[in-house]
Each structure stands twice: as C-alpha cells, then as structure tokens.
Computed example of a mutant assay.
Amino acid sequence: MTMTPHTSSSAAIDAEALARLQAWQGRSETLADELTATPVRALAATLDRDDPAPGQGARLPELWHWLYFLPHHRQSEIGPDGHAKRGGFLPPVPLPRRMWAGGRLTWEAGNPLVVGDAVERTSTIASVSHKAGRSGELVFVLVRHEVRNARGLALTEEHDIVYRAAPAPGEAALAPTPASKDAAFSREIVPDDVLLFRYSALTFNGHRIHYDRRYVTEVEGYPGLIVHGPLIATLLVDLLRREKPEATLSKFEFRAVRPTFDTASFRVHGRPEADGKSFRLWAEDADGWLTMQATATLA
C-alpha cells in the first residue's frame, strides 16, 4: 500500500473539478523495456529464494513484471515525499493521499513472459470517478495496462488507485477486519529496513514512507515504515509458488485493506478452494487484522 502526502490543503472535488480530472480518461502512454536477468536474480535474493540462475528464456514469475517499466523522473521532478510531482500521465488529483488499492491481472495462455523478451506496455486511464464516504472524499483512478512481447499480448492488468483526504485531527479510524483463521499454509515475514529498502531499490520507488523512518513518523505520523502493497501481493504469490512450485497462474486479483508497518512481523496465508484451481490468499498483521486479500487462479 503506497500513500502519497501533499503539502497543500486538499480542495473539495466538485463537479467542475471532477470534469477536469475526467479529461484524463483515454490518455495513454507506451513504454518499452527488456526483461533482463539481473532484476530477477535480485528479487529472488530479496525474497530469500534459492532459485537457479535465470537463463535466457526462463519464465518470469507472476507479478515480477513490476521490476520493469520503472519510473525515470528526473531528480528535479521529484516532490518532497519522494514521489514524482503531480500531473503528467496520471490526473492531478488534489487529495493528499494516494494508495495502490489493488488490481486484477490476466496472463495469456501459451505466451509467458520470459527472460530476454523485448516488451512494450501500453497504459490507458480507463476511468476517473469520485465518491464521498465515511472516510471523506475519494477519487478512484483505474489504469489498464497491456504488456506485449514479440509473440503478442502476454498480460493484461487493471490497476486501482485511490486518492483520499487526510484524516481530520481526532478522526476515528475505520474498524479493522479480523483475518481468517482457516489457512492451509502460511509463512511469517519480518519486514525489516533492509527488505523494504531492497524492494524500493528494485522498483526504483523513491517514496520515503518505505525507507525514511524520520519522515514517515514525524511528517506522516505513522508508527513505522510502511510495507509496499506490491511487495505484499508478491509475497502472497510467492507463498503459493512455495506450496505448488510447478504451478503457473492465469488470473490474480488482490485488494489492499489496511497498511502494514515494519514494527512487527506479519503473516501471509493461503487456502485452496473446492474447485482445485483457485486459491484464497491473504495477509495478516501482528494484531490479527486483515491487511490484503487475494484470489489466484491456476492456468
């Protein structure tokens, strides 16, 4: 879960402001990259995996495409929180916090992403919508990504981004959801500074909430460093890979529910569904609260 602060006061999203943001709908960009082996080796080490060296043609594990198409904003374009300044491809939503709230991914049968592929990702702003709820104003931005290699479409991803207002002083937090206790397999994760730093480095993520303890506690007011949402999602899929090493996925859906901090270890869990092809996956913090839930479908 990644949240972005904004130093100015947030403005209300009225009809005129929403219309300006919705002008971004349909905007697209295409980036090119090559699926090189070095990031694969580095993430395997970060996840404490003893994988063989990834040679040319080795299949890229699911979600590891997040190691590529990285942001390359110039240093002068970076805001005080470590993220790029607002505007550009994403609409300039005037709400102070941004969260990678979840996503849905589909891998094309017979066309895996492999080391050595030259790839292109086309990203399109599919929708911008507004809602006022118990926690204040929310703006939802849906980004659709299509990743292609020389053989055609390989992966489709829908990426949910939620912008929200900062909590008012004394505002009560939403009630957390207890995590399910019926796991069939689990793993404990210790989110220490090194793990979070390495993942930030691998994904070229400069957001200070993941590595700058003074900033996240004194400026953001959180109790500790925030574990990256994509890292937790990757750990959920990694848990399934450890349980079923030969399995590949056709679909994966996940939703972030609650922030996870580095102040204590957390656990990732999994359980097969009755159909034998899908698995329920979830993450639980040290207090027993649900932090992420997901469903993985085998190919």
Rank of each mutant, 00 (worst) to 15 (best):
K131I: 06
G133S: 10
R104H: 13
N111T: 13
G116D: 12
A165K: 01
E146K: 13
A183L: 04
V162G: 01
R151H: 14
R214D: 13
S129A: 15
N205T: 09
L202S: 10
S123D: 04
H159Y: 05
V114I: 15
A109V: 13
E158G: 09
A126F: 00
E171C: 01
R214V: 09
I161L: 15
E157H: 12
A168L: 14
A172D: 12
T124C: 08
A165H: 01
E158I: 05
A126Y: 00
T156C: 11
D160G: 02
E157F: 08
R214A: 14
R134A: 14
G116T: 12
R213D: 01
V147M: 07
A118W: 03
G116Q: 11
A172F: 02
V128C: 08
F197K: 02
G136F: 04
H210A: 06
A166N: 07
P169Q: 09
W107N: 02
R134G: 13
D182L: 07
T122N: 10
P167T: 06
A126E: 15
D160F: 05
H159M: 09
R208G: 01
A150S: 15
E146Y: 06
H210E: 06
R164S: 06
A109D: 13
V119R: 01
G110Y: 10
E120C: 12
V162Y: 01
E108I: 15
R198N: 11
L153A: 12
V141R: 02
L105M: 14
T122L: 08
Y199S: 02
N111I: 12
A168C: 00
E171R: 11
E137T: 09
I189W: 01
K181Y: 00
E146G: 07
Y163P: 01
R134P: 03
P178D: 12
L202C: 11
R144P: 00
P191M: 06
A150R: 15
R134L: 08
L113W: 07
S180D: 14
L138R: 05
L174V: 07
D182V: 02
V194L: 15
G170T: 07
R198F: 08
E157G: 03
V139A: 05
F204D: 10
S200F: 03
P167G: 04
F204P: 06
N205W: 03
K181W: 00
V147C: 10
S180K: 12
T124A: 09
I125S: 01
S135I: 03
G103R: 05
P178E: 07
G110V: 13
G152P: 12
D182K: 10
R198H: 10
E137R: 10
L142C: 04
A132F: 04
G103F: 02
E188F: 00
S180V: 04
R198S: 05
W107E: 00
V162E: 00
V162L: 12
D117P: 11
